[in-house]
Design a binder for these strands. Structure first.
Length: 1131
RNA sequence: GGGCAGUUAGCUCAAUUGGUAGAGCAAUUCGUUUACACCGAAUAGGUUACAGGUUCGAGUCCUGUACUGCCCACCA
């Protein structure tokens, strides 16, 4: 037995890490197939599976520290599982990041070449982008390997791989037939920067300074009638009064009219003398008219002091008084606070208006004043909404009111909706369903409960952000840039009564930072109602556990509030929506502001109608996609399907559990599959199952190929005929009505067992005319047992050519494919299924851990959960571990613009991958952010050196022993059991005790037993930490224990027992007992040392493997530490 | 406006769910003793943001306050 010695320190990670990486890759240690083989040799015959799908990073950029941090966690889980005897699959991939990648590609690749998207056809653009990203992806993979991620890189999968495409399109197809996906005209977030719709979650809010415009909706003819109302005002000017109002809200007043530096409000209750000098102080606002009494008050900071007359004669007073009033009768504000002061007006406050001055008439006309920060949307108003409990407007609800507005005379319905805040602005909400998500919701709510009298939307802003033909003279003006012009013009006409500065939240596009324009447009949506409930249920029932736990609640709330998910994006980079139209599909705004869809010039109401008329259809890319149904004990008994799937990546394999003869499992699996017009291959018991299913559900399929498990002339047939395929196949005679052709393959003979044969067979059998044996003799005498794979291949090839021919004719026949592509989250939301399906590994589903940053909990985790449950009925992962976001050295979020990006390769070359992994993991907890910390990195580099030197100590002391001693050590090693012995001193508790004292305490005790006990405790604690996903604590505890118990205490204590020479180099004489003690100690040292290496391996794989390689094979259970078995602690 | 998280040593963060507040780095002192100076031995550093409460016992649970960060949201 020879013990290789380690080089002198300090440890240099750069020398060893790349070699170790090469060793792992060369030996394919990362593959589950290798795991199966190695574990098998170790006596673990049926290892449990353990699966982690690596979140695919975006393919377009060089990864920085933040991108890579997740791999450290994923790898810890994976490596530990491997060392616990599991067959580990870690599946890497890269994401095409549709929208973002297209922007980056155009900006960073095309623009510097002086090119733009317009220089390419769609296909050219796609091809060039694909080859570019293909190159870039390699960089990301290098980083993944370099940090030690032990994923099966041979399987690295791109989200635009044809095999993924198959899953993505099949999912869409299933959603199409389940009516979960629809194309609808609906409000969308239109990003002018992307020239595409984006989902809510791709937007962010920003507070900006803007104006609140108070817009007049005048009652026609009311300008003339102004006197009448005023005349009714009664006065009781008996005493002077200083207005003083109990105030509640300090923010709302800033929204109010500010005129001549004073805020002006209306109030009532009290009286003033005409010439009283008064101070009006108030902070509330209320239009108040009872018996035509009106009053005004001002804020405390801006008292109006003056006589009543002076106040009344102020311009603003007149404006407000005349404008913000009433539609009808007596309207009472219900929120006059106690102690309010009121100014009562008299009928002298009237004014003869010049009949010709229309603008003034508008300004002083009675009507509504409604506050808005977006005056340009008034052209899209289709209703006025009030709170149902707002007493001021009770009479008006459900009335249609003719109004003069900035765009002429219109009729608006007043509706009630609880969403309207009666205290905001004037308590009235102008409803613009086409250009406000809020209004759109109210619009939907109203129309859902008032089907007989629906309100409309009116789209007045185009995708170019400009006002359209419905805006009269404002047509062509820009909704954002020309806002002030529009408002000024309205002000001149008297329709903007006053304006004031206000803060407003605008929605901007997260990617391009342009202002989102809510507009009506036809987009593809996923109806999330049917998807979110199972997801919500899974979260609540803890079918999927989320770490940190508090994020569970966050996800639940998000799911509950989820609206329909827009999945179409108007870009080229991604999966093109597989729906075809008979001619161009166009979207126009008609005279009423409705969005009208036409296909090839023919107007359609909605897509189902178009489909019915033959103007639209779903047509998946022309990849042949047969459905493969396994026989009993699926899917293992259908291994031959793997061959088919190699040739046809689009083939869709049905996964079932063990099948009983009631076919319950089949039915469950079938329900998730769309059989419509497909070629179906069914093996053995799958054949009767699918026949029954097709007949029951009345599904039309294209072709059915049945593979019989036995041949009627086989020796087994007599027993087979009463069960399985043969017993259950009776209904085959009816199937001809549901598919174009049926073929049964069971022999080497080219003759097929046709439907007609079967019909005859079954009929005669049923009539008792023939026996099975007779038929067997007549028809099957020459057939052999095994099924004919070549024949199956030929058949499929034939169907494929038919299938492709059909598809290719689409464009010739004038069909045009939808121009949009899927949202990137639509495809990545199916990632666990797409990856495993692509490799035929669905038996690894559901996966064990999904590890990712908490920032994409809603974006990604939720989608995977919904789609996973939808497609398979099972959660895609059992645990979700969310790591915190890593910040730059300055403590700020890392971003290119801040210039604080730290690249992984720089850190690794300075400190090594192991130290970096430690920095990511030790002492950190799920969900909590942390900084790139060079002090920590230095500390962990020192730790690695410590391990190196402890290893040198251990190996050199073993190496110094004689061959016979080594043999004795080997025997002793096998006897050592790491157990907790409760009576002994606990070493881990002595860390803070002075070292001299420890030596005293240990006098006469068996240090080896005490150490074993201490390590056992460590093992147990680490188990617990892992069970609860506290990996940061696990790492920290191992670190502490290794350094301060093992190195500082144990090794110091045993030195005298194992050294062969004294300080002067003279040999030490030992008694027989002392020699035995030395052997025992070295054996214990070795066992414990290995245990530490194993415990440390998931965290610092490179160093531990390097050291492991120096331990002689005779003294270890596995050549690589990756597969050495670290049993969990058992009492 | 709502929700969630956080506030602990000079700095960065832990504390296994209520049981003596810890680590790394930094600081001070000592020590080059056959693994290690990328080391060892020792020292100092805390009213756990604040104010109450429950408890034998609170960093941890409850109530409130003040900051910080994140997410969500229909105040037009």
């Amino acid at each position: 037995m020879k013990i290789k010695q380690l080089a002198d320190g300090p440890y240099d990670p750069n020398k060893t890490e790349t070699n170790i990486l090469e060793y792992w890759l060369e030996n394919s240690f990362y593959k589950p197939e290798t795991a199966q083989e190695i574990l098998g040799k170790q006596g673990i015959k049926n290892p449990n599976k353990f699966t982690i799908i690596n979140p695919p990073p975006n393919a377009y950029a060089k990864p920085h520290m933040g991108n890579v941090s997740g791999y450290a966690y994923q790898d810890v889980f994976g490596r530990r599982a491997r060392m616990l005897g599991k067959k580990v699959l870690m599946f890497p991939g890269k994401d095409h990041a549709a929208q973002q990648a297209e922007i980056v590609y155009i900006r960073d690749v095309l623009a510097p070449q002086g090119k733009s998207k317009d220089d390419f056809t769609r296909d050219e653009f796609y091809a060039e982008a694909y080859s570019y990203f293909n190159k870039i992806m390699k960089i990301a993979q290098d980083d993944e390997k370099r940090i030690g991620l032990s994923s099966d890189f041979d399987r690295d999968l791109f989200t635009l791989d044809p095999r993924v495409a198959a899953t993505v399109y099949n999912t869409f197809s299933k959603m199409w037939s389940d009516s979960i996906v629809y194309k609808g005209v609906r409000i969308v977030n239109w990003s002018p920067g992307l020239n595409s719709a984006v989902a809510d979650i791709d937007t962010e809010r920003k507070e900006i300074d803007s104006h609140m415009y108070y817009i007049k909706y005048a009652l026609p003819e009311s300008a003339k009638g102004v006197h009448e109302n005023i005349k009714k005002i009664s006065t009781d000017l008996t005493s002077s009064y200083t207005a003083k109002v109990v105030q509640k809200n300090k923010i709302k007043n800033t929204y109010l009219a500010k005129v001549n530096n004073n805020y002006i409000y209306f109030y009532s209750t009290s009286t003033f003398k005409e010439n009283d000098e008064i101070n009006l102080i108030n902070i509330g606002w209320s239009v108040f008219l009872k018996g035509s009494v009106c009053a005004v008050a001002v804020t405390e900071e801006n008292k109006i002091t003056g006589t009543i007359s002076e106040i009344k004669n102020s311009e603003i007073f007149k404006a407000i008084f005349n404008s913000v009033n009433v539609y009808d009768k007596n309207i009472v504000s219900n929120q006059i606070p106690n102690g309010s002061a009121f100014l009562i007006l008299e009928d002298e406050f009237t004014q003869e208006l010049n009949e010709d001055d229309k603008n003034l008439q508008n300004k002083y006309a009675k009507g509504f004043i409604i506050g808005t920060v977006r005056p340009e949307t008034v052209f899209g108003d289709t209703a006025i909404a009030v709170n149902p409990n707002d007493e001021r407007f009770l009479d008006m609800i459900e009335q249609k009111i003719k109004l003069n507005s900035a765009y002429g005379e219109i009729e608006l319905l007043v509706i009630a909706d609880p969403g309207v805040d009666k205290e905001f602005g004037t308590g009235l909400l102008k409803l613009t369903p086409a250009h406000s998500a809020t209004d759109y919701e109210i619009y939907l709510r109203y129309n859902n409960s008032n089907e007989t009298r629906p309100i409309n939307y009116k789209n007045v802003i185009g995708k170019d952000s400009k006002l359209n033909h419905l805006c009269g003279k404002y047509e062509g003006m820009h909704a954002e840039d020309d806002r002030d012009n529009i408002a000024n013009s309205m002000e001149d006409e008297g329709f903007v009564v006053f304006k004031e500065k206000a803060k407003s939240n605008i929605v901007i596009c997260e990617r391009t930072k342009t202002i989102i324009q809510p507009i009506m447009s036809s987009q593809w949506f996923i109806d999330t109602d049917k998807l979110k409930l199972p997801a919500l249920d899974a979260v609540e029932k803890e079918d999927v556990k989320i770490y940190p736990e508090y994020m569970t609640k966050k996800l639940g709330v998000w799911l509950k509030n989820l609206r329909d998910w827009p999945i179409s994006r108007s870009i080229w980079w991604g999966y093109r929506i597989p729906v075809w139209y008979k001619g161009e599909i166009t979207e126009n705004t008609d005279a009423n502001g409705n969005i009208v869809l036409s296909i090839g010039g023919q107007e359609i109401k909605n897509l189902p109608e178009a489909v019915e008329k033959g103007l639209a259809k779903l047509s998946l890319p022309s990849e042949f996609n047969p459905i493969l149904i396994p026989g009993r004990f699926a899917p293992e008994n259908a291994n031959f399907y793997a061959e088919i799937k190699k040739k046809y990546p689009w083939a869709e394999q049905i996964y079932t559990g063990e099948i009983d003869q009631t076919f319950a499992d089949y039915e469950k699996a079938f329900a998730k599959t769309n059989f419509e017009n497909r070629v179906v291959v069914a093996h053995s018991l799958g054949a009767p199952a699918i026949i029954d299913y097709i007949l029951d559900k009345k599904i039309k399929i294209k072709s059915l190929i049945l593979i019989a498990p036995s041949n009627p002339d086989s020796a087994n047939f007599n027993s087979d005929k009463d069960r399985g395929f043969w017993k259950n196949i009776e209904r085959i005679s009816d199937i001809a009505n549901f598919c174009e052709n049926v073929t049964v393959i069971y022999s080497d003979n080219d003759e097929h067992f046709s439907v007609q044969n079967f019909k005859d067979f079954i009929q005669k059998l049923g009539e008792g005319v023939v026996s099975v044996e007779e038929l067997n003799k007549a028809h099957f005498a020459t057939r052999k047992y095994s099924y004919h794979s070549e024949e199956l291949a030929n058949l499929l090839a034939k169907y494929e050519s038919v299938y492709k021919a059909e598809k290719e004719s689409l464009e010739k026949d004038g069909w045009v494919q939808d121009n949009d592509v899927f949202d990137t989250w639509f495809s990545s939301g199916q990632w666990p299924i797409a990856t495993l399906t692509a490799e035929g590994l669905m038996d690894y589903y559901p996966t064990d851990v999904m590890e990712t940053g908490y920032d994409i909990l809603e974006l990604w985790i939720s989608r995977m959960l919904m789609l996973g449950l939808y497609l398979t009925g099972e959660v895609p992962f059992k645990n979700v571990y969310l790591h915190g976001l890593i910040k730059g050295e300055d403590g700020q979020k890392m971003s290119k613009s801040k210039g604080n990006l730290v690249y992984t390769e720089d850190i690794i070359s300075e400190y090594g991958a192991d130290a970096l992994r430690m920095m990511y993991i030790v002492g950190n907890k799920a969900g909590a952010g942390y900084k790139v910390d060079r002090q920590k990195l230095k500390g962990y580099r020192n730790f690695l050196n410590k391990i190196w030197n402890v290893s040198r100590f251990t190996l050199s002391n073993l190496g110094g022993s004689s061959e016979s001693d080594l043999e004795k050590i080997k025997i002793k090693v096998a006897e050592i059991k790491i157990r907790i012995s409760p009576e002994e001193i606990k070493l881990e508790e002595l860390q803070t005790v002075a070292k001299i004292k420890i030596t005293e305490l240990l006098e006469g005790k068996d240090i080896n037993l005490i150490m074993q006990s201490s390590v056992a405790t460590l093992l147990k604690n680490v188990d617990e930490h892992f069970t609860n996903f506290r990996i940061g604590m696990a790492a920290e505890e191992i670190y502490m224990h290794f350094w301060h118990v093992f190195a500082d205490i144990y090794i110091e204590q045993i030195k005298s027992k194992i050294f062969l020479t004294d300080r002067e180099g003279n040999p030490i004489q030992r008694t027989e007992g002392e020699t035995q003690e030395r052997i025992d100690t070295l054996a214990t040292l070795l066992v414990i040392f290995q245990k530490y290496l194993q415990l440390l391996h998931p965290f610092i794989p490179f160093l531990t493997e390097e050291i492991w390689q120096h331990i002689p094979s005779e003294l270890k259970d596995s050549e690589t530490i990756m597969y050495s078995q670290l049993a969990t602690y058992r009492e």
